[in-house]
């Protein structure tokens, strides 16, 4: 851990690995050296399967530019989703998607 830049964020959802789906409740984010990607530094996303005792997890290593692009894409899709919810009178809160 060379940069000391990391953060753990509570989230809610599901993820899939080779052995099947698992519930996720945290994501660990760091700006640090990647394990695999051809980058000096990466935005590393670590999503652990906390119901497993086998250290199974999903790891993403993104270039900082890719991470920014992903954030923009997420915001655009979220905005569209919110607009759809308000138009239909439904909300993500009602469906528990928060």
């Amino acid at each position: 851990m060379c940069t000391m830049i990391s953060k753990t964020i509570p989230i809610k959802g599901s993820a899939k690995e080779s052995e099947g789906w698992f519930d996720i409740n945290t994501i660990n984010i760091s700006y640090d050296h990647p394990f695999k990607a051809d980058l000096g530094y990466a935005i590393n996303l670590d999503i652990p399967n906390q119901s497993s005792d086998k250290f199974s997890r999903i790891i993403l290593e993104l270039s900082p530019q890719s991470a920014s692009t992903l954030i923009e894409g997420l915001q655009q899709v979220l905005a569209s989703g919110h607009a759809l919810d308000s138009h239909s009178g439904d909300s993500s809160q009602k469906r528990g998607l928060h």
Binding site: T8, N28, D32, F35, K36, D46, D53, K54, F55, I59
Partner: peptide, 18 residues
Amino acid sequence: EGHGDPVDIASKVRSDGG
């Protein structure tokens, strides 16, 4: 931290702040 693939364990360690 336990035993498994070194990368998985290292990723956990990093998430815990080293």
